[in-house]
Structures are given as C-alpha cells and as structure tokens.
Amino acid sequence: MSFPVFSIAEQRSSVPVRIDEEKCIADKGCTVCVDVCPLDVLAIDLSKGKAYMAFDECWYCMPCEKDCPTGAVQVDIPYLLR
C-alpha cells in the first residue's frame, strides 16, 4: 500500500468579514469591497451574486466596510485577537 507524498486536511476558520446579503448589490455588478481589499481576500459568489470572504487573511483595516455603497459589509476583529 502506498501513501500520497502530501496529504491535506482543511481547517475550519471563523472569518472576520460578514456580508449582509439583503443589502449586498454584487448581483447588480458592484465589486467595490473586492476591489479595495489590500489582501484580496473577498470575492463574489457568482451563483448567489453576493460578496463573501474567500480567504481568512484579514488586516481588519476596513476599506471594504467604509467604501461599500449600501452598508452591507461588517468587519469584526478576527477571533484569535478578539
């Protein structure tokens, strides 16, 4: 029996950026939060037409929240620091 050289397990992470999908207008073509993130951690879920945090790599710097035209973004302090 042989084992793969690299075996990968995913770890769960509670992400600091939350999107209010009622308010998010990504389905209308808005990408402001995705555009301004210095770490490029936000993305648009194309099936839902809503923004979401794709990578837990947040500096909690808040351009996404401040620049969102509809107030749909909330930045929490990452749990490990809270």
Partner: peptide, 12 residues
C-alpha cells in the same frame, strides 16, 4: 500588488 485606492501603510 493590491489597489492603489486603498493600498499600503496608509490605506485608511
């Protein structure tokens, strides 16, 4: 590397 509108040490 990011977006000049909000990049770097003084992004906010």
């Amino acid at each position: 590397k990011a977006n000049v509108k909000r990049s770097g040490a003084i992004s906010m």
